[in-house]
Structures are given as C-alpha cells and as structure tokens.
C-alpha cells in the first residue's frame, strides 16, 4: 500500500515536482519521435480505448476514407510548428517553383525581424539554420535526410524557434489588426513574449493565421474532437485559400495528414 502523504508546510517540494515533470518529458521523448514515419489510421485509433466511440468512428469512417495516412509528432508544446515546418518543406521539395518563392520570403524575413527590433545576434543563428535546411531541400535532399534533420533535436528546435520568431514578427507588424483578438489586457508584444517566442508554448488560431499568412503557405486543419457525430470539421488558414498541407488537430496536439 502506498504511504500516506502528509503535507509538511516547512518542506520544499519543488525538487520532487520538477523531477517528476522531467521524468514525464523523458518518457514522452523515448516513446515518440519528433516527426514519425507515415503510419496508418489503425495505429491512430489504437490510441483510443473501445469506449472512446466518437474518436474511433471519426478515424475509421471519416478520416480513413479521405486521407491515406498520418505522420505523428511529439507532444512537447511545439508540435504545431514542427508539423507545419516538416510538412511545408516536404511539400516544397516536390514543388520547385514554390520553393524559389519561399526562399525569397525566408531570406527577407531576417531583415524584417531586425527592423522590428529583434537584436541581430539573437536571431541570426536560427535564421542561418533555417536557410541551411532550405538549401538542402533546394539541392534535392532525400525525404530520409529531411526526416533525419527534423528528428535531430538541435536542428529541429532551431527551426521551431525561427518559425516562432516569424509568427511574433508578423503579429507585431500587424498588431493594429490582431490586437483585438487578444484576451485580457496584454499588449501584442507581451503576448508574443509570453505565448509565441518561448519554446513549448502551445499554438492557438492566432499563431496559425500568422504563420500561414506571413509565409504564404495555406494549411487545412481537420479537427478530431467530440463535436458532432461521425465526421471531422475542418478549417482553412487563411480562409478561402487552397491548402497545400493538411494537419490533424486532436485537443492539444497537431499531426500531419496525407491524402
């Protein structure tokens, strides 16, 4: 039997709590690659118990009919950015005319961030890594190499940071419009400092709108949740666009879908 827990107000429990959080993070990291191979929907519905009828029905009777497979991402709070980054580059590797346009946008983005007040020395390493990976795609790297890059925590996190910076830059540049979507009395700069730039902070609609608009890469998100009965709702970012990549949203998490 477990020992009865008696709270001692004179004791500090921070160490124990943090150790437990770190253990959980480590377990997630060991069980889930940053970006997985393509897997079938059956492996997705296996994650839901028999009694989770709505999820299983939506996977088996809806998603499975409309999409071929899914690529899972690690649930570390960065999944939207990592899923978007990988799907975007994977798509660009098959579309050379879009790649040239994207390279230009990516090149420009650094001077835009600097003009918004980001100190050059804090952003240039992330920009460099991002451009290096794009150059790999331009030089026809294989899908395996791209997958390897995104599963190398060092490189992968550099890409995530840079995508976060792009979102922050875009929202601050367009703050006149987007400030009205913020809850509470935070300024756009405070919102970006607290909810966009730090690693591990989860993404909301506003992050998605900003990233897809600033990079010109439209995304469809399919929502796998408890709403409705047997089909998933979807939403395109920006609205009325023709999405080039599709992400699967489950409450708190994003994966990549393939049709």
């Amino acid at each position: 039997m477990a020992e009865e827990f008696v709270f001692d107000p004179n004791k500090n429990y921070d160490d124990a709590t943090m150790a437990q959080l770190q253990k959980m993070e480590k377990e997630i990291a060991e069980n889930q690659k940053l970006i997985s191979d393509r897997v079938s929907f059956d492996s997705l519905s296996e994650e839901y118990a028999k009694e989770d009828e709505i999820y299983r029905t939506k996977i088996q009777q809806d998603l499975k009919n409309r999409y071929k497979c899914v690529r899972k991402t690690r649930g570390d709070g960065n999944c939207f950015f990592r899923a978007f980054g990988f799907a975007c580059l994977e798509n660009l590797s098959n579309d050379k005319s879009q790649l040239q346009r994207f390279l230009e946008v990516a090149k420009q983005s650094k001077s835009e961030l600097v003009s918004l007040g980001f100190p050059e020395f804090t952003i240039e390493d992330f920009h460099e890594t991002f451009m290096d990976v794009l150059t790999k795609v331009e030089n026809d790297c294989t899908l395996e190499e791209l997958l390897e890059t995104f599963n190398d925590q060092g490189l992968s996190d550099y890409i995530v940071v840079y995508l976060r910076l792009i979102v922050s830059g875009y929202l601050q540049k367009e703050s006149d419009f987007y400030s009205s979507f913020l809850e509470g009395d935070r300024t756009m700069k405070e919102f970006c400092n607290q909810e966009v730039e730090p690693m591990g902070k989860e993404s909301d609609h506003i992050h998605i709108i900003a990233l897809t608009s600033s990079l010109g890469v439209p995304v469809r998100v399919e929502y796998l949740d408890r709403a409705g009965t047997s089909t998933c709702n979807h939403h395109d970012f920006p609205e009325d666009s023709t999405p080039v990549i599709t992400l699967l949203y489950r409450p708190g998490h994003y994966d990549i879908l393939y049709s």
Partner: peptide, 16 residues
C-alpha cells in the same frame, strides 16, 4: 521574474 523560467525564449539575451 517570469522570463528567467516560464517565459524564457532563445531570442532573449543577457542584455534583455
């Protein structure tokens, strides 16, 4: 100070 833990970002620096 929140930027020293929860709100830290790799875009921050000693100066900030």
């Amino acid at each position: 100070l929140s930027i020293l833990t929860d709100d830290w970002s790799p875009a921050l620096s000693v100066t900030s």
